[in-house]
Design a protein around this nucleic acid. Sequence first.
DNA 1: AAGTGGACCTGCTAGC
DNA 2: TGCTAGCAGGTCCACT
Length: 271
Amino acid sequence: MPELPEVEVTRLSFGERIRGARVLAVRLGKPLRWPLGAEPSALVGTTVGETRRRGKYLWLALDRGGLLLHLGMSGSLRFAPEAPPPGAHDHFDLVTDRGTLRLTDPRRFGAVVWSEGVDAAPAARLLAGLGIEPFDEAFTGAHLHAALKRRRVAVKTALLAGDIVVGAGNIYACEALFAAGIDPRARSDTLSRPRCERLAAAVRATLAQALALGGSTLRDFRDAHGTAGAFQQQTAVYGREGLPCRVCGRAIRRIVQAQRSTFFCPRCQKR
DNA sequence: AAGTGGACCTGCTAGC
DNA sequence: TGCTAGCAGGTCCACT
């Protein structure tokens, strides 16, 4: 699910509300991708600080250390004053005096990991190697061009890898490539500087638009209030195999790259 | 060293 | 109606 817009929408929907809350209890469900790495009881009595995002990770600061959260493929967070009894897919509850922050994640690719700090293990190790933030001013066409030059993979694969720029997952990588008029199969080191300028701008614009629409809800994404996103209703290519391109009318194609579906318009997007 | 494929886990849908 | 194959928003790790 959750690419940068969904993670950021989630953060915005509970970060301020939970700030300053006192932790009353921690409840764990089935195992997630990694163990919590702390005794749940050790978190009780601490106070929640700032909620930050890095790539698709969230960092929830506590008095001492904090929690690094990832939503995986199917995770979502809710924060509400009253939480119903945990269901089969509710695998983490942070019960506070202002409400319960609950991770629901059917596939359990998500994670909640306690760490002494963002810059300490294990958080630091998970965040190491992440690419630049797309809304950072250092993410320029020049930066992208230089990074893509060092690879010899399909440009879509390079975007998805997340070590050049973070945040664009399968939906938004497809959408950004369409917006930039670039064939997802084009080899990363063949893209001209001007095309990289267009691609960098398209990545930012696509993510910004998705953010403004509350993200994409394909099946189960919700923000911390329980609200669904709306971006999925206006994708240009993602999930539109066989349907006419909104620009030229040609049928959108689906191919597989790096074991993921890629959608593109064979006329509007060029190598 | 970069590139590729498998692994993790569950649920839903299309097709027979 | 019921079963099965295929697919799903991510990313770490082992291997070539």
